[in-house]
Every structure is written in structure tokens, then in C-alpha cells.
């Protein structure tokens, strides 16, 4: 019977150690072991994007990563998006554009959006819709999300 494995990883810039079973997903480890419940579980099979985190510079579904695979990795989650000075421009524009209702999908959308806009702050609507195709929202109908991302891009270009 395999026991617990010690994993050392960097989460939002902080070295973090945790113990997990090899079968546990990174999402389970974040939520149930480390206690960071910002990343959400929607489908647990890669289809909804609610669990999106940034791992070594790429967005991934944390439900499809094993916690043990995070050994030595840089993981960035929704908890690391706001700073001590306040909300990130993406969060601010999601709020102002009413881009969320129940909010379950929002952490995933924001982590995915951040990766896009940091690389391509002038992404247009087609690019945004394509980039976010792996994030599902059952409430908003997407238009307000896309408008919020366009708006956030403008804010980030303005600095």
C-alpha cells in the first residue's frame, strides 16, 4: 500500500511543502491538503476549466495533474492574483463588467485570462473566445466575460 509522499513546490511565490497520496490530483491537494479553496472543482475531468491553475508558465486543469507532479514546479493560483495593494485589473474589470453570477467559474477564468493578457494584452475577441474555450460558465452567457477581458486588456496596456 503506497504511503504519503512529501512534495515541495512553489505556490504563488512561496515554497510550500505538503504530504499527499500519489493518486490525489493537484486540485485535491490545493483544496483539501494545503487549504487553498480558490480553485474550484466543476467536472473533475478536464472539461470545465474551473480548476485552472498556472503551472510552470502554462495554464492547466489541476484536476488532470497529480499532486506529486507538482514537485519542484511553480504553481500560481487565483489566491496569488490580487496584491497587497488591491485587486488585479482583471479582477476589477470582472467586477465592473458583471462578468460573474454564481462565481464558481470565475477563478478559472481569471487565471486563464491572466496568462493570455500577460502574453497578449491586445488579444481581440476571437482570440479571447478561443483561449477561453476550455472554461465553461453556466450563468453569464459569456458575453460579459469577454467584454471584461477586453476591458482588462485595455487597463493592462494603459499600465
Amino acid at each position: 500500500m503506497p504511503g504519503l509522499v512529501h512534495v515541495t513546490t512553489t505556490i504563488n511565490g512561496n515554497q510550500t511543502d505538503f504530504l499527499c497520496e500519489p493518486r490525489q490530483s493537484l486540485l485535491e491537494c490545493l483544496r483539501d491538503v494545503v487549504g487553498m479553496t480558490g480553485s474550484k472543482e466543476g467536472c473533475n475531468d478536464g472539461n470545465c476549466g474551473a480548476c485552472t491553475v498556472n503551472m510552470d508558465g502554462r495554464i492547466v486543469c489541476s484536476c488532470l495533474v497529480l499532486g506529486v507532479e507538482a514537485q519542484g514546479a511553480e504553481v500560481n493560483t487565483i489566491e496569488g492574483v490580487a496584491s497587497a495593494d488591491g485587486l488585479h485589473p482583471i479582477q476589477q474589470s470582472f467586477l465592473e463588467n458583471a462578468a460573474l453570477q454564481c462565481g464558481i467559474c470565475t477563478p478559472g477564468f481569471i487565471v486563464a485570462t491572466k496568462a493570455l493578457l500577460e502574453a497578449e494584452p491586445d488579444a481581440d475577441e476571437a482570440r479571447i473566445r478561443h483561449w477561453l474555450a476550455g472554461n465553461l460558465c453556466r450563468c453569464t452567457g459569456y458575453d460579459k466575460i469577454v467584454r471584461a477581458v477586453l476591458d482588462a486588456g485595455e487597463r493592462m496596456r494603459a499600465g
Partner: peptide, 9 residues
Amino acid sequence: IGSIQIQGR
């Protein structure tokens, strides 16, 4: 294949 998230893996 899948989404940007899926293509990352």
C-alpha cells in the same frame, strides 16, 4: 486537441 489547458499537457 481540447482546450489551451489540455494542450499545455
